[in-house]
Nucleic acid binder design. Sequence first.
DNA 1: CGGCAAGTTGAGCCAGGTCAACTCCGGTGG
DNA 2: CCACCGGAGTTGACCTGGCTCAACTTGCCG
Lengths: 255, 255
Amino acid sequence: MSDQTPEDCKICALFCDSSNFCATLSPPELVSLSAKSQTTTFKRGQTIHDDLIARWPIFVIESGVMSLQHLLNDGRKTIAAFYTRGDVVDMRNSSNRKVGHLVALSKLKVCKLSPRIFESIVHSNPRARSVIWDSLRDQSFRAIDHSSDLAKKQALEKLASFIFECSHRNPGKSKKDRVEIPARRLDLAEYLGMQPETVSRCYKILEDQKIIKVSDLSLIHILDTPALRQIANGARAEQTITAGTRPNLKMRSAG
Amino acid sequence: MSDQTPEDCKICALFCDSSNFCATLSPPELVSLSAKSQTTTFKRGQTIHDDLIARWPIFVIESGVMSLQHLLNDGRKTIAAFYTRGDVVDMRNSSNRKVGHLVALSKLKVCKLSPRIFESIVHSNPRARSVIWDSLRDQSFRAIDHSSDLAKKQALEKLASFIFECSHRNPGKSKKDRVEIPARRLDLAEYLGMQPETVSRCYKILEDQKIIKVSDLSLIHILDTPALRQIANGARAEQTITAGTRPNLKMRSAG
DNA sequence: CGGCAAGTTGAGCCAGGTCAACTCCGGTGG
DNA sequence: CCACCGGAGTTGACCTGGCTCAACTTGCCG
């Protein structure tokens, strides 16, 4: 049975991650899906063009990070959603509505699936259907969560939420207290609806309060999970940006 | 054939609206779904309890408006999503993740569907599956759109976007320029991540600029669609809240 | 090593949050 | 039928979180 599994699939995100969508498939299904699929890579900043999406509306993120961006008329940019390893992106209605541009935020590898084969597998295999349905529903609720973060949370609270979101989204890699942030400060700001300067200041506050430690621009250690959770859930920090930085700055300039 | 259609179904939102999900069903399918479904009504402000959702995780909005609310620890409330007539709500993963509370925003009638029958229809009927899948994907993209509205738009821009969102969501009722707003000011504020006072001020600006006319708290007329569209798409209004109201207020107090 | 892009720090300002007073309206009871 | 009440909405005045702009530092790539 395993000897029938195509080689490529053994390392594929859809096979290993993504709640094992491909692992629910029978070998013949897997072979036929694999035969009609293609991987493509993108460099950071590259946009996935509309005509490519029209031809291959369904794909899986193999590695790297992809963003769905919206642009306002005057140039303000928003990252409306992130997709990471194992996420299944289904753009089959992108022609009906203006969903935005897909842009690679890092070196990105995607596996484009044949819509026809995908559909026929979803039809015939109830377990596969259930997995893919759950994943789609999960994306929907993730977007809803993100909306509510943006709606009422303050900058510090949004950042704290985001750290937990990252930690939940790659449970393998992060050993609970180590969280990988898959984006640059600028991207992060665009996702959280704030300015890069503000992101930077918020990180500083969390570091000063010994709640996190920023080892690298893309890797942080959570030192005090309950405190971070408190902030993320909106137990309104008495230390806001103003209260947090300005006294510190004064102290620093005084010392 | 039509004599086999259960009476209840003829007026059901899932049958008439919702891209005609039920209309794709064969009479026997419809009969079996109908037999195992139940309608329930809620009053404004009522929460749909978790145990009800656990037993009936899939339902359709027949009439009225339902909201998905998130609550922060210090009491700040957000309406993360609206559901209106024809929307299919699938909460089958609500146990895995904290999705929030479902609260009726008006007199609400929902039709609870048997998950088992629903699943079997989705399995056997490709057209029904495609319709329901599209609808779920649409909900997802709607949430993503909403995120990007909240992330970078100013208050006035968010309100303008919201008016278009309402107009698109019940294309039947609104005769292009008449838009029904299905929520109170307070709910609207919670959905758009702003204060009721600010919502009120923004309406006033749009009225003063002769872009809309508010006939009733829940019904507005769009007088200048291009201008409203401009604002919604972020062609940064030179008239912000401050610039809009304060001069007016001065004029008023001077006159 | 030089040049550019990303990130950080600082200072000032403004959009919108906050609080308080007032109006409007639907329901209730006398 | 009107007096009263309470909750929703509106208006005004003030205040602040975070945006803006500018200067600086850091890190990456050739």
